[in-house]
Nucleic acid binder design. Structure first.
Lengths: 329, 329
DNA sequence: TTGTAAGCGTTATCAT
DNA sequence: ATGATAACGCTTACAA
């Protein structure tokens, strides 16, 4: 059963040429005479030869491996980003080592080092939070080929691909004001750059529209958090904006339990436009992010870096879109 | 900026020993005298030396990389399996290269070869369908270290970790009969081993309970498919069993549009117990699979194989659990 | 155009 | 207990 591996040597011997000719043929077929080229090609096929990536990597210093670090491997939104990047980069010969940090800054640091020890050529990184001092220090030291997607460390000098969180929420406030809402509650997610940007959008929105009657509730990006926050809310406003769709769903459930109807009594909106949001009762009005495109762009930017070219800018901010459904007037 | 990589040579030179001593110290500290061991350890720390995995791989023939091939990178259920396996194997020094086949048999074959060319030590595989003859042929030829999870090719001789699909649906039929249902419709998913096993469970269930009034509708594992199938259903039965939760949701929507109430007019059940199923209106009665545990078991079995030990059995079938919520009487 | 040989950073075999 | 050295499979000067 000992299936001896076929190497470039075997091909060379069978084709009656030297191994360098075979190697040269593979990287640039034109650099070999037509006659030998054909013979080599035939031999490669006959022996079913596949070059050993490891040996090649050792020699060239490149592995064609990309490390992709995300907060939670189980969240479809993150994986849609991964998919975008993968679709772009796999065409170019790269594979992905994926790591999920379970939202833990400690695991994140560890995973990062593991990926590095696997000699990945580059990194795509969605941070779990923005408090990872150890990792930030490490990044400053190492100067890796890396891009941030969706979230970032502001103090690290690496390209960032994200969406216009601020503008998205601001647009939503505008829309709600137009439909007649006068009092607002904003459900803010935990400390990440996007949570902060969304909050900023809310603030801009209320200020621009001269809304004085608003409240900001601090929570987490989960169903339960949205539910709990709204459950203990005393004065129900005209509109509740969830920091993401999950929080909005939680808010909706809490409101239902209070006997309120949506959108008659209160408009509820989200941010993300998850797969389920259109099927929810009521179907959720929300801010859609071009998640897949974000990933694709991240792949593109990283590829540019890996190719040794200069990138045009450090921040790639994609636009959002307001999706109006039944949870708002 | 040319950060020259620190190699075993540097450590040897600084510590005043030969490289073989350093190497030996790393793989087995006791094989080196205490005095030298300490000196080497100090030097390693001082220089912040990390062995080059690529070089090691070339020499030892092992990469500590696992290939994980799934039908759809965007489906949280598959990723929960991945997570289970990852949690088990990352403790043991393995990283994952993840590939999503987009439910395409063609992409699947290609990805498989890509992963092999990355010299992964082992494979965990959730097939996209069971029609991939080319891949099956390839697998027979290559005799890789691999396990199937969730779905399998019956003709390939590799361990399989799955759930008792048959028993799960059978239990559900029993339960529905007990609540008084007399006529049934089963919404069957596309051709995979688990779809077949679930259908078998339905058939066993109706036969055991002497139910004559039943119908099987062939579709796909999607919301839309469940919706369409039920939409054009003429005689509404007492119970509709979805091949998975998504199909059940689709069925529920179609029934609502027909003006029927659930569960008063008809009971609807699913299979999976997705994250959302408990929040759906009505909350879905379904068969829960221990998905995470499945992944963990897959990691365990693969690890056993990679360690060169014999495994006890070829099939690891985990139990399911009936979750009763509001979509059934 | 083709071949020879050095070298990538390890581990493992064999002396010492 | 320690050290030389070959070998893993490939790429790439350099020589022919």
């Amino acid at each position: 059963m000992k299936n001896k591996r076929i190497t470039i040597k075997d091909v060379a011997k069978h084709a009656g040429v030297s191994i360098s000719t075979v190697s040269r043929f593979m990287s640039n077929p034109d650099s070999v005479s037509e006659k030998l080229g054909e013979k080599i090609q035939k031999t490669i096929e006959k022996l079913n030869y596949h070059p050993n990536r490891i040996a090649r990597s050792l020699r060239t210093g490149t592995t064609k491996l990309i490390g992709f670090l995300i907060p939670d491997i189980t969240n479809p939104a993150f994986l849609l980003i991964v998919k975008g990047a993968e679709d772009y980069l796999k065409k170019r010969g790269y594979s992905f080592i994926l790591g999920g940090a379970n939202h833990s800054v400690k695991e994140e640091t560890k995973l990062f080092k593991t990926l590095i020890s696997q000699n990945v050529d580059g990194f795509i990184f969605i941070p779990s939070g923005n408090q990872n001092d150890e990792l930030a220090e490490f990044l400053k030291l190492h100067n890796l080929k890396m891009v941030f997607v969706d979230r970032r460390y502001e103090e690290i000098n690496a390209p960032y691909i994200g969406v216009d969180n601020t503008g998205g929420v601001e647009k939503m406030v505008d829309y709600l004001v137009r439909t007649g809402c006068k009092s607002f509650v904003y459900l803010c997610g935990e400390k990440t750059s996007s949570a902060r940007e969304r909050l900023e959008g809310f603030l801009k929105g209320v200020s621009k529209n001269r809304i004085k009657d608003y409240q900001i509730l601090q929570g987490e990006f989960t169903f339960e958090s949205g539910y709990n926050l709204v459950k203990k809310l005393e004065n129900i406003p005209d509109a509740i904006l969830g920091g993401n769709d999950l929080m909005a769903f939680g808010a909706i459930e809490a409101l239902k339990e209070k006997g309120l109807s949506i959108p008659e009594d209160v408009s509820v909106t989200g941010f993300d436009d998850m797969f389920f949001s259109k099927y929810y009762k009521p179907a959720l009005t929300t801010v859609r992010q071009p998640i897949y495109e974000m990933g694709k762009m991240a792949g593109r930017v990283l590829f540019t870096i890996l190719s040794g070219k200069k990138i045009r800018k450090m921040n790639y901010i994609l636009d959002t879109e307001i999706i109006i459904r039944d949870s708002s007037k």
